[in-house]
């Protein structure tokens, strides 16, 4: 599903150029659950952002379902993202001004799903993550675990083929963390590909494969 070859990514300021990713190549197969691990600053999140088409790569090739997407313009990226990729972040990134229902509904609005259909799908997914009873609450009124469940619901409501999770349990206690990992596992079992960045060996154990990174390069791949 994902084939990245010889990826280079630099961050430049006026004075310094930092290599964030250096000749990095990875493959992710359809239906795989991959964990990416490594110390802070090794380029995990940058890699995830590039996979999610939130960030550009400077050199190399990125194929998504055999289509070269490295040179996609903003519009094509946005199209590909909204139909194929769901995101889960460490800090949940829910929109404070929208309710639980509205946050989850958002991706469906951007893909122009009709209102009745939206309602049905949002309610289904809220039931699935067991947060239906909080549908009219605002994010600040929820616990961290509940907020992450909403974020997961938002990531999956559009039935994406790929979920990118950036330390999804980083801000959660172990109980809530386990619940979220369970949710991701269930989604993976249903066929969704998952790439998850994590610091937690415990969470990484849920995956099929662990990619370990250091200084912008893949240093080891372990099959779980």
């Amino acid at each position: 599903m994902i084939k990245i070859t010889e990826l280079q990514k630099y961050y430049r300021t006026e004075e310094v150029e930092t290599v964030a990713l250096n000749s990095l190549s990875i493959d992710v197969q359809k239906g795989e659950f991959v964990a990416v691990m490594g110390p802070s600053g090794c380029g995990k999140s940058t890699l995830l952002n590039i996979i999610g088409l939130l960030d550009d790569l400077d050199e190399g090739s990125y194929k998504f379902n055999d289509i070269e997407v490295a040179k996609f313009n903003e519009r094509k990226r946005s199209d590909l993202r909204k139909h194929n990729i769901g995101f889960v972040f460490q800090s949940f990134n829910l929109i404070d001004e929208l309710t639980v229902f509205e946050n989850v509904e958002l991706p469906l609005i951007y893909t122009k799903v009709p209102a009745a259909e939206r309602k049905k799908r949002v309610e289904e997914v809220l039931e699935k993550v067991q947060i239906m009873h909080r549908r009219n609450h605002f994010p600040q009124q929820l616990s961290g675990g509940q907020q992450q469940r909403v974020a997961v619901a938002r990531a999956v409501v559009n039935n994406p083929k790929l979920i990118l999770a950036d330390e999804p349990t980083g801000n959660l206690d172990s109980n809530n963390g386990n619940e979220v990992m369970q949710l991701l596992t269930e989604l993976n079992d249903q066929g969704t590909t998952i790439v998850m960045v994590t610091h937690s060996e415990h969470d990484a154990r849920y995956s099929d494969r662990i990619i370990r990174m250091l200084d912008g390069q893949v240093v080891m791949t372990t099959v779980g």
């Binding site: 999610g52 939130l54 903003e74 519009r75 946005s78 199209d79 993202r81 909204k82 139909h83 995101f87 990134n93 829910l94 929109i95 404070d96 001004e97 958002l106 991706p107 951007y110 893909t111 938002r154 559009n158």
Partner: peptide, 16 residues
């Protein structure tokens, strides 16, 4: 910025 980014992440494009 966070709101804008989240919207972009979940599928909003520039025109949205």
């Amino acid at each position: 910025s966070r709101e804008v980014s989240v919207r972009k992440v979940v599928g909003a494009n520039k025109s949205h």
